[in-house]
Amino acid sequence: MASGGTTPGVAAVSVAGLTVVRGTVTAIDAISFDVPQGEVTGLLGPSGCGKSTLMRAIVGVQIVASGDVTVLGAPAGSPGLRSRVGYVTQAPSIYVDLTVRGNLRYFATILGAPDDAVEQVLDDVDLRGEADRLVGQLSGGQRSRVSLASALLGSPDLLVLDEPTVGLDPVLRRDLWALFHRLADAGTTLLVSSHVMDEASRCDRLLLMRDGHLLADGTPAELLARTGSSDIESAFLSLVEGGAA
């Protein structure tokens, strides 16, 4: 799928002809696109369309069948990228039998993050009040914020976030999107996935996915103009039906 517009600046992530096979299923089918630096790019598509697999390939934890994934100028998964790429999986990957602060302290040491980083990210995700509680006693939304905070610790250049706002209350969701844009303004590149189309308007740029294919790649305004739709959900439908015809 060709890129809809020109790419401003240098690409933080460059995917070329990526194919991923999981078991007998082709989860990602010859996808190519660029993610520009310092922007919030949304990866939207229904559950099971390959968003998580694509994100795993960008982080470098996924065995790929073919194609190239270049992240911050190096092949995805290179040792030098391990402290520059933050990754948050859909299910919170944190220790339930540690406190919030215990989790963050441990990951900060592994990342070699400065001492004040833990307190900073606690404020970023609004969990200061829960810092000394065991993660096992927190709600699902609070756990996913601990997982997000762990990825923010090393001030990574690229943040790959798999459905970070699922199940959060609207106020918190708005605050997190504000945080994502603050990080982007400071130069961080963010790739954020969602299966909720109404999050599209919060992104600088969109990648629409379905069944392992890329349907579209461009700014929300471009996608709406191209499909003559009034919202991203209708744009998605028109792209799916246009592609099938």
Partner: peptide, 9 residues
């Protein structure tokens, strides 16, 4: 958590 650690340094 193991996958997270191994994606870190």
């Amino acid at each position: 958590t193991l996958e997270r650690l191994l994606s870190m340094p």
